[in-house]
Write a protein that binds this DNA or RNA. Structure first.
Length: 448
RNA sequence: GCGGUCAUAGCUCAGUUGGUUAGAGCACAAGAUUGUGAUUCUUGGGGUCGCGGGUUCGAAUCCCGUUGACCGCCCCA
């Protein structure tokens, strides 16, 4: 127990854990490539300014940031979005649209570690650039669903809650909130769930900043947030909105509701209707989201959000590049791993060996080594005991290795120029001439 | 950054009002078994009881500090 511990919130990945992690990455990667996304990677360390520009100075408290030896303010990346915006922004002129990119990478945040939240974690990020319409959201939400369904999770296990900040902006504007006040109200909305019934409490941060709100307005905001799932309909939201709307804004709202309908219909046509529900309570924490936002949750669980994303049409311009519409999401390995564990869907590593070589003694080892090397060069996974062991022990080791075949290099066999090949599953044996070992093993392993 | 609970072998845990050399199961290794995989039996390695200090004749046990994990705030890109 003496010696060193890993840093708080950081994990080791010994082979068993590594193999579970690789399984998660495999599912994500194959989902992304099936959807036609291209993989990219980027530096782990970035200028601190990149994150301050995107999220404001307060963000620094949550960053793994420091000064490098050249006196540069730098930070380990806490997320991929600013980086990918920079990459796309730099090449935007030469990229074919729509731009569909994904990555699997490690991120670092200097926060208190808790269940489902560590200081170092992996995320799958997928983004679409250059498409302003809801077609991009259809594609991304479908991909998100596949990133979870690919493990065997179903609509009974998780759900995607979809909301729209544009409708919120329209509605809150109609209620008389100013552009400066609206983000503060959305922060309040974000707290509704946590604050539970007493919305009075939830409004406190807003009221401290902008002064008291009348109860009627509070109730309207709360009622709008409660629009979700079954009780949501375009007609209802329109009616509710029209009570408060100025006539010239009606056109914007009905256009937006048409986008909403297009998105929901597209997902329904893909057979994904059961995975998605509208829930205006979701607004997402950060201010740079500009349209549809969505989060994936464990249905029966006490887990944190599995994934989150949304549209951020202004960000690339804010970082100093061309104006380019964008929408993306990220899904993390920590919460996903916890959910898979709860559902018994974690992967067990398969056998790492195809052939176990049983060696009679020092003399036989020489012949065995020649064939072992030939087999391995041909791509066959071969194991053999380092030390001379009794045949009994070697066969035990062979069966524990998970190998399908054993090759037996004994004095009797080699004297006849053959090797004994044993099928470890049915225990049948046959002699194989030395020269045919590689060909025979390969044909048995590939099944023809 | 703030509050609460916890910390004994690789894992799961036991350990009496403070009392000899800190235990069990699982796992790992060796042997019974030098030409065939199971089961079983025997044996072994592995602990400064998270770390540091204090009280005591004596501390895994009581006290203080510290580190870490978990839970709740803050935050959640």
């Amino acid at each position: 127990m003496a010696g060193f511990q890993s840093l708080p919130g950081f994990r080791d990945f010994p082979p068993e854990d590594f193999s579970r992690r690789q399984h998660v990455f495999r599912v994500w990667r194959s989902a992304a490539t099936a959807f036609g996304f291209q993989e990219y990677d980027a530096p782990v360390l970035e200028p601190l300014e990149l994150y301050k520009t995107k999220s404001g100075d307060e963000i620094e408290a949550q960053l793994f940031s420091f000064k490098d030896k050249g006196d540069r303010e730098v930070s380990l990346r806490p997320e991929m979005t600013p980086t990918v915006c920079r990459m796309v922004g730099e090449k935007a002129g030469s990229l074919k649209r729509p731009i569909k990119w994904f990555s699997i990478a490690e991120f670092y945040r200097y926060e208190r570690a808790q269940k489902g939240r560590l200081r170092a974690f992996h995320q799958f990020n997928a983004d679409i650039f250059g498409e302003a319409g809801p077609e991009a959201e259809i594609e991304l939400i479908a991909l998100l669903i596949q990133c979870l369904a690919g493990f065997g999770l179903t609509a009974d296990d998780f759900t995607i809650r979809l909301s729209d900040r544009n409708l919120w902006f329209y509605y809150l504007g109609a209620l008389g909130f100013t552009a400066a006040q609206i983000p503060a109200v959305l922060t309040v909305v974000d707290r509704f769930e946590k604050a539970g019934a007493p919305q009075v409490e939830a409004f406190k941060p807003y009221e401290e900043k902008f002064g008291p709100l009348d109860q009627t307005t509070k109730n309207r905001v709360h009622a709008f947030a409660l629009q979700s799932g079954k009780n949501f309909s375009e007609q209802e939201i329109l009616t509710r909105w029209l009570q408060d709307a100025k006539p010239e804004a009606r056109e914007k709202v009905s256009a937006r509701l048409a986008d909403f309908r297009k998105l929901m219909d597209g997902l329904a046509d893909m057979g994904l209707k059961d995975f998605v529900e509208i829930d205006m309570m979701v607004v997402r924490g950060l201010a740079y989201y500009t349209g549809f936002v969505f989060e994936a949750f464990d249905r029966k669980g006490d887990l944190r959000a599995l994934a989150g994303g949304g549209r951020y049409n202004d960000l690339i311009k804010k970082l100093g590049y061309t104006d380019l519409p964008a929408v993306g999401f990220a899904i993390g390995d920590v919460t996903t791993g916890l959910l898979l564990e709860q559902r018994g869907l974690t992967s067990k590593p398969g056998p790492a060996t195809d052939v176990y070589v049983v060696i009679g003694g020092e003399v036989e080892r020489k012949a065995a080594f020649a064939d072992i090397q030939a087999l391995r060069a041909a791509g066959v996974r071969v194991e053999y005991p380092f030390k001379d062991l009794s045949f009994g022990k070697q066969f035990k080791a062979a069966s524990e290795s998970g190998a399908k075949l054993a090759l037996i290099y004994g004095g009797d066999e080699l004297a006849h120029g053959v090797v004994k090949l044993r099928n470890l599953a049915d225990r049948s044996e046959r002699d194989v001439p030395r020269g045919q070992v590689v060909a025979m093993v390969r044909s048995l392993l590939t099944g023809h």
